[in-house]
Structure formats: C-alpha cells, structure tokens
Amino acid sequence: MSAAETLASSVRKGAPAITLAGVNKWFGALHVLRDINLDVAMGERVVVCGPSGSGKSTLIRCINRLEEHQEGQIVVDGIELSNDLRSLDAIRREVGMVFQSFNLFPHLTILENCTLAPIWVRKMPKKEAEALAMEYLERVRIPEQAAKYPGQLSGGQQQRVAIARALCMKPKIMLFDEPTSALDPEMIKEVLDTMVMLAETGMTMICVTHEMGFARTVADRVVFMDRGEIVEQGVPEELFANPRTDRLKTFLSQILRGH
C-alpha cells in the first residue's frame, strides 16, 4: 500500500486509527481532494495546515462522513466507511468532532448538551450521564456553568463545552476543525490549553489549525495541504525549519508575518 510508504518519516505509536488510501472528492466540477493517502496511528496527534480552500476541513469531515468521498478507501478504527448506516453510526460513536462555530444546541443547557448523546446513543441512565458530563465539564474547567444555556456563555467557554460534549461519548479519536478561528485572542489560549491537556492524555487527535505554536507543542506530525493535495508532512520542527517545497515556504512566510 502506497499510503504506508508516505508515513516512513512519521512516528508510529500503535495500531492504525485512520487510514485514507487514494481518496478523491469533488464538489461539482471542483476537485477538492486529490489522491489523499494518510495513515494516523492510535495515540498520534496530527495537525493539518494549509491555505484556506486547500481542502483541510473537507479532509477531516470525510473521516466521520459529514462529507462523502467519491473515490478511494477510508478505514476508521478498523471499519470501512461505506453507505451502510450501521457502520457509519459505529464510526461516529468512536469519533468526536469539534467545530469552528461550536454548534452547541441552543435549546439545551450545557449539562443537557453533554448528556444528550450518552443518553440517546450510549443508552446510559441519566444520573450516570450527568456524573460523566460533570466530570468532563470539570476537566475543561467550567462545571459552574452546567445549568446555563449556550447563549449565556462566552465563545471560549462554548468551545470548551463543545470539547466536553464530544468527550462524553468517550471517543477513541478526536477531530478538531479550526477550533479557535472564531475566537478572540484572549479566548484562543483557554481553548488551546484544553486541547494540550487532552493531548497529554494520549488521545488520537487530528486538528485543522493555523496555531503553529500548538503544532510545535503537541503535534507528532504536521501535514501541509494545498489545492486538495498533501504537499509535505513531517515532524513539526523539521517541517517548519526546512520546508522542501515552495508552496510550504510561501505559506509559512505568510503565517509568520501574520503573527
């Protein structure tokens, strides 16, 4: 398999968590993912970066099938993504996702946001689900907000609730889709701190982000995408210090100028 060869430089921590082989996707005539080969091992932390419109978000949205790919193979936790709804539900139970715009449920309290999926998907008794939710709300350091509604919280708090909500399903893999892009600078730090803490627990993570500091601290590997392709990937220090392609050089110079 050619996907395995591209991984030669990356750190292997365990069994494969996610395998993408020859994945292609089009939006109408627009070819948004071109021949993507990517392996992520259990416990690995991968940061995906690249200019806007490069297909990073589409890539991770394909992993839990919020987007459908048209060609190639995606295997998550040993289950291949297909049109079979049962396998899709099984994958979504094991893969948590955090969105750029939080997407909390505004008609439910913070606690209810967190217990909804454990109750309805994991079939957990309410008391147990609430205890679990409080545990994770404490871990993201906002247990005192449990009875409030999302509209009453700041952006940073909402995003931390969104992380807790995903963790309540005890996923094996977490996907982050630009989790800090919609936040004020002062709130970015509290969310990143939460993500670093999560990384330290050994969670398998794929993060689409422009936060290069975060990539340096926690990522085992950085994947650089441009125009729907994976252009370069490697250990963060090396990738940032010695970019091999012009496209990555340009991207890095733009990102660094911005900071």
Binding site: R93, M97, F99, F105, A117, W120, M169
Partner: peptide, 27 residues
C-alpha cells in the same frame, strides 16, 4: 436551524430521526 446543528448532532452518532426530534424540530 443551521446546518451546523445537523452536523454536530450527527457527529455525536445520533441517527437522523432523533436529530430531527431532539434538535431540529424544537428549534
């Protein structure tokens, strides 16, 4: 009801019918 609500609920593993009843219709 924004598409994000559907996506967030589906990403949590809720089947479509439950997303409709528990998330979309109440809003």
């Amino acid at each position: 009801v924004s598409q994000g609500q559907w996506e967030a609920a589906q990403a949590l593993g809720l089947p479509r019918g439950r997303v409709m009843n528990l998330i979309v219709l109440p809003q």
